[in-house]
Design a protein around this nucleic acid. Structure first.
Length: 572
DNA sequence: CTTCCCAGCGCG
DNA sequence: AAAGCGCGCTGGGAAG
């Protein structure tokens, strides 16, 4: 069953569709539901296990969750449309060829007010300003239905380009389902939040920085380091937060650095360097995750960041607000399970190299990947057991290193693993030539900009050098894209499969865990003590399922490292 | 005053 | 130890 949900002046319009996006002949007219009734109506219809089709998950689902309504599956027209519009798998379709899409921000339909999340307290007036509803939504049920039908048609044609294998359609369909599931998971995780103990965070800050200072003042530890630096650098009014001032002060003291980056400062043995590095470390903690951050982002024991699905071209998620994907190790101790609960922190170990093995079907490297520690396996095969060397070489191949140790090791790696290295080399050459590349499930890299294409038509020698540099830079991007993008494909499937298993456990009446955090190749489940074993099994089964969904039954393992902890700092 | 960009550093 | 991919956030500082 397919149910389209569209914004409507009186609330929402609901329309039943067939699988290919036609109106259901038995029920061709949309049904208008008032904003107040919507959550109840949606809850009632969920027993038919429909796929909810909507313009954007973000427009509807957060408020439904707020009303206590969780849904099984959906289809996000905006996210799926963006994939289909750019995928190489659909490049030959009318859908991709017509540039006109629903993705422009200024075209967003307004969901009913009653379904919008409550505004932050400071802006309470907004609720009562302006008419209750904006102008008539620009996406009528008919518009959205046509968009869905067009996307399904593009998908149907995905396996039909000449000379391509038919399972491209299945892969793309899987990607759209995983992306849509991801959008729901993002909303659910934001709704649930990461368990965060404010008093533990404050204790950590006090230990590093001293007691909380008055607004606009440096904490005691930073103040003391500033005083020390001013003396050691003979600069009585130095502000160490200013790179320019700092640079001048360093030069006056004979410290000839070109930047004030940590690793360059570490070259110097001047007595001011140690306190300077300590200052930078602590200043970062204070600015990025100090008391101000805690006040702004943690409420009632939960950190509730917004995740941006599809926020990275490779398919990784981004986040908005609170720096959710950059929680520093220093403060992970504040992420703490509730009483009677554990945090299960699971990460896919060495995901990107393993994805490369599978993409390239490199059987030699697959042997190494049978080892739980892939780098150790590679080291044994071609680097005389030197794990560090093997790791640097392999990461260099994925990132496109040209210089340094990593660059030097490339020929050695290429001799041992011609298929794997050839795979990323090929992606690099295509990028340099201005072509797009594509992840396993069909997410394609953006085409080169007009400016880039123009640069390649250069005349003078100087322009040519610049053009070559830009071409190589794009080659590094596409080289990395095929691996990072396919790893993101895998992670999206892992997440969706895990969600399904956790939902099934809950439906069983089993005390199940909840997904509370996701970070590229890592998930966190907040779990009642009694459900830990089942949750771990779900995480591992989901990883295996994801591998098979992407690559079929190939002899490459995607092992998951699992830690059951009270607080996040105890993982890893 | 606001707006934008950069340097630097956090995460994978 | 480090220079190669993808991000977000901060404070400083220049531009408007």
């Amino acid at each position: 069953m397919y149910l389209l949900l569209a914004a409507h002046a009186d609330g929402a319009a609901l329309q039943e569709l067939t699988a290919d996006g036609a109106p259901d002949p038995a029920n061709p007219e949309p049904r208008v539901v008032s904003a107040g009734e919507l959550a109840g109506v949606v809850r009632g219809l969920e027993k038919w296990r429909p796929r909810w089709i909507w313009h954007r998950t973000q427009d509807w689902y957060p408020a439904l969750l707020g009303a206590g309504v969780e849904l099984e599956r959906s289809y996000d027209l905006t996210l799926c449309g963006a994939i289909l519009a750019h995928s190489e798998f659909t490049a030959h379709t009318a859908y991709a060829l017509s540039a006109e899409k629903l993705t422009q921000d200024d075209e967003l339909p307004q969901p009913p007010r009653a379904l919008q999340p409550p505004p932050p307290p400071a802006e309470q007036g907004v609720l009562f300003d302006a008419p209750a509803l904006g102008p008539a939504p620009r996406h009528s049920p008919g518009d959205l239905r046509a968009e869905y039908a067009a996307q399904q048609e593009a998908l149907r044609q995905a396996g039909m380009a000449t000379g391509t294998d038919a399972n491209r359609r299945q892969r793309l369909q899987l990607l759209l389902a995983a992306e849509s599931a991801g959008a729901m998971i993002a909303a659910e995780m934001q709704h649930t939040g990461v368990p965060w103990r404010e008093e533990l965070h404050e204790q950590i800050l006090a230990d590093y920085l001293g007691p909380r200072p008055p607004l606009g003042h440096r904490p005691a530890k930073l103040e003391a380091l500033t005083t020390e630096l001013r003396q050691l650098l003979n600069s009585p009014s130095l502000n160490p937060d200013s790179p320019q001032e700092l640079m001048r002060a360093l030069h006056r003291n004979g410290i000839e650095v070109k930047t004030t980056r940590q690793w360059e400062l570490k070259e110097s043995t001047h007595p001011a360097i140690e306190p300077l590095l300590a200052y930078k470390k602590l200043a970062r903690l204070h600015a990025a995750n100090g008391w101000t951050w805690l006040d702004a982002w943690v409420q009632n024991g939960r950190f509730q960041p917004e995740y941006v699905v599809g926020g990275v071209v490779s398919g990784r998620w981004a986040s908005r607000g609170g720096g959710a994907l950059q929680i520093p190790r220093q403060i992970r101790g504040a992420v703490h399970a509730d009483p009677g609960h554990k945090l299960i922190v699971a990460d896919a170990s060495q995901l990107e190299p393993r994805v490369l093995v599978a993409l390239a079907r490199d059987s030699k490297m697959a042997e190494a990947a049978r080892d739980k520690d892939l780098y150790a396996g590679i080291a044994a095969q071609g680097f005389g057991g030197d794990r560090a060397k093997a790791k640097v070489a392999l990461l260099g191949a994925i990132y496109g290193a040209t210089t340094g140790e990593s660059g030097r090791l490339m020929p050695q790696l290429a001799r041992t693993y011609p298929r794997a290295v050839g795979y990323v080399e090929q992606a690099a050459r295509e990028g340099e030539a201005g072509k797009t590349v594509t992840s396993r499930l069909g997410r394609s890299s953006p085409p080169p900009s007009d400016r880039w294409l123009q640069s390649q038509q250069s005349a003078t020698a100087e322009e040519q050098r610049r053009a070559d540099s830009l071409a190589r830079s794009r080659g590094r991007f596409t080289r990395n894209f095929v691996v990072q993008g396919s790893a993101a494909d895998w992670a999206a499937c892992w997440l969706a499969e895990l969600r399904r298993r956790l939902r099934a456990m809950r439906a069983d009446g089993t005390n199940a865990g909840e997904l509370v955090f996701f970070l590229h190749d890592e998930v966190m489940v907040h779990c009642p003590d009694g459900a830990v074993e089942d949750c771990i099994r779900a995480i591992e089964d989901a990883a295996t399922a994801a591998k098979e969904l992407l690559f079929g039954p190939i002899p490459v393992e995607f092992p998951v490292g699992v830690a059951v902890v009270d607080s996040y700092d105890k993982a890893k």
